[in-house]
Design a protein around this nucleic acid. Structure first.
Lengths: 302, 302
DNA sequence: ATTCATTTTATACTCATGGTACAACTTTTT
DNA sequence: AAAAAGTTGTACCATGAGTATAAAATGAAT
C-alpha cells in the first residue's frame, strides 16, 4: 500500500542520483522498482510529482536532523552550526538535490519551480536566524545578506570540489572554512552598517511565509470558505476530500497521516477547474501546517 | 552561407532565453529562424551542438570584452575588476547562460558537461589571476579559494535577487558588494596563512589547461602522432580530415576558418572508434588554439 | 544561357518518451 | 465468498529529436 509508494520513491531517487532527472525515463523507474506503469501513475500524477515527493522527503529529513542536532546544545556554538549545515549539504549531495534543484529551477515547469523556491528560501530563512543566534542581535540587519553569501560560498566550493576531485571530502570541512570567512565578513559589515538585499528578502519572506505559522483555526476557516465556494457541478471527489479535511482538523487528536494522504488527491482533484489555484494554495498551507506540527512534536518530546 | 548559421544561432538563443533550453523544440527554432529542418541539421549535429555554439559565442564575447576593458587601465583598480565581472554576469544573464549552465551540467550529456566545465574553470582561472593583480603577490596562495568564494557569492546573490524581485538591478552593484566582502576575507586569509581547495584546483587547472598555451608546433606534433596511429581499417574521412588539419597548420598564413570547419567533423568521424578519446582531446586542443589565437589578434591590434 | 554542384526545402519517416485508458488479474478487507 | 481496492499488461496517443531523400532553388563556371 503506502509501502509501494516508498518503494517507488527509493528506486526513482536512486536513478535520479545516478543518471539525473532528465535522463531517467519512467520506464527506468518501472524496471528498477518492479512495478507497472499503472501503479506509478496511481501514486504520482506525473514524473514531476514524483520528483517533488523526493525533494520533499529530503527537506523533511534535513529539517528533522537540523532540529535534532540543536537539542540540548548551545545555539551559539559555531561547530554545531557547521555540523547542521554539513548535514544539510550531505543530504543534498547524497540525494543529488542541488543539481536537480538548479536544473529544474530554470527548465522545469512553474509548479516544480515554486516548490524548489519555497524550500530554498525556507533554508535561507533558517540560516539567517541561526546567524543571529550566533553573532548576536547586532548582526540582525545583515543576517539575510550573510546567509545568502554563506550558502553561495558553500555551494560553489562544493561544486568546484566535486568537479576537480573525485574523492569524497567531508563537507563539514568546507562549511567550517566558509564560516571562518563569515567571521571576517560579518564584523566588517556590522561596522559599516550597510545592508544589501537583506531588507528586500526579509520583506519577501515575510509576505510569502506569513502562513508559515498557520494555526489549525486558520486552516479550518480557509477550508470552510473554500467549501462554500464549491457548486453542484464540481466533482464529488473534491467535495469529499474537502469535507474530510475539515472533519479531520476538528478532531481532538489530529490524524496527521490521514490529512497527509488526502492533501495530494485533494489538490489534484481540482486540477483544471476554476478552483485549481485556490486548492493549490490550501494544499500548500496544509503541507506547511503538517511540517510545522511535526517539528513541534520533536521539540516538545525532548 | 555562414550567415545562415548565425541566423539560426541568434534565433535559437532568443528562444532559449525566453523559454529555456528544454522547453524549446527544434520546431520552434525552425519557425523562429525561418529555415527548414534539413538546414538546421546541416549546421548542427544536434540541439546540444547548437547550444554549445551559443555558449561558446557568449564566452568568446565575454573574453573579448574583458580584455577590452582592461586595455590602458590600471590592473589594480577594483572598479575595473567589478565592471569586468559585471559584464561577464551581464552576458550570462542576458543570454540566460547560468541557468542553462547549471541545468545542463547535471542533466545533460557528458559532452555538454565537458564544455561548460571548461568554460567555468577558465573563468575561475582568470579571476584568480586578477585577484593577484589587485591584492598582490602575497594573496597568491589564496587566490583560487578567493575566486571560488567570490563567484559563489555573486552567483547566489544574483540568483536570490532574481527570485525575490522582478526589477532589473544593476549587476555591478552586487559585484561591488561582493568585492567589499573580499576586502574583509583576503587579509584575514593572508594573516592566517591557510589555504583550502586552492592548491588542488591550481594543480587541476594546470593539468587540464596546460595546453592552453598550445603552440602550432605542438599541435602538428600531436596530429602527426595521431595520424601514425591510424590503420587501414579506419574511415577514409577521418584520415582526410587529419591530413587536412596538418596541412592547414603548416601553411604560412593559417586558414583558421577552414580548421574551425573541420574540427567538428574530424571529431565526430572518430566517434565510436578506439581513437575517439584521442580525437576528442586533439579537437579540444585545436579549439583552444583557435581561441587563443583570436585573442592574440585582438590584443595585437590594440 | 546552360550546366553542374551546392544549399535549401518539404515531406515523410523512425524511435524514444510521457502520459492515458482499460480490461484482466491479484490481494486485502469485510 | 464477495466486494473493494490495488496491480498488471497491453495497447494507445501526442510530442519531439533526429534521419532520409527527392525536388526545388541558388549560384558559380564555362
Amino acid at each position: 500500500m503506502n509501502n509501494r509508494k516508498r518503494q517507488v520513491i527509493v528506486a526513482s531517487q536512486k536513478l535520479f542520483v545516478e543518471k539525473g532527472f532528465q535522463n531517467t525515463s519512467i520506464q527506468d523507474i518501472l524496471d528498477e522498482s518492479h512495478i507497472s506503469k499503472g501503479t506509478f501513475y496511481n501514486y504520482f500524477a506525473s514524473k514531476n510529482e514524483c520528483l517533488i515527493a523526493i525533494i520533499a522527503k529530503g527537506r523533511e529529513e534535513a529539517d528533522v536532523r537540523k532540529h535534532e542536532m540543536l537539542i540540548g546544545q548551545d545555539p551559539k556554538d559555531k561547530n554545531i552550526l557547521a555540523k547542521q549545515i554539513a548535514v544539510l549539504m550531505q543530504i543534498n549531495r547524497d540525494q543529488n538535490l542541488i543539481p536537480i534543484f538548479e536544473s529544474i529551477f530554470h527548465s522545469g515547469d512553474p509548479e516544480l519551480k515554486e516548490v524548489v523556491m519555497r524550500f530554498h528560501l525556507n533554508e535561507l530563512n533558517w540560516l539567517a536566524k541561526r546567524i543571529v543566534d550566533i553573532y548576536g542581535e547586532e548582526s540582525k540587519p545583515h543576517c539575510y545578506d550573510a546567509a545568502i553569501l554563506t550558502f553561495g560560498m558553500i555551494q560553489h566550493m562544493l561544486h568546484i570540489w566535486k568537479i576537480t576531485r573525485e574523492d569524497s571530502l567531508d563537507p563539514v570541512l568546507i562549511v567550517k572554512y566558509v564560516i571562518q570567512q563569515l567571521d571576517a565578513i560579518l564584523p566588517a559589515q556590522i561596522e559599516k552598517g550597510e545592508h544589501f538585499l537583506g531588507c528586500d528578502l526579509a520583506k519577501y519572506l515575510h509576505e510569502n511565509f506569513k502562513h508559515k505559522y498557520v494555526t489549525k483555526e486558520y486552516l479550518v476557516e480557509q477550508l470552510n470558505g473554500f467549501s462554500e465556494g464549491l457548486i453542484e457541478d464540481d466533482l464529488q471527489a473534491g467535495k469529499e476530500y474537502t469535507a474530510c479535511l475539515i472533519k479531520s482538523l476538528r478532531e481532538e487528536t489530529i490524524p496527521y497521516y490521514i490529512i497527509e494522504a488526502i492533501v495530494l488527491p485533494f489538490n489534484t482533484s481540482f486540477k483544471g477547474t476554476k478552483h485549481a489555484a485556490e486548492a493549490q494554495e490550501i494544499a500548500n498551507l496544509i503541507w506547511l501546517f503538517i511540517k510545522q506540527n511535526n517539528n513541534l512534536n520533536i521539540l516538545n518530546s525532548n
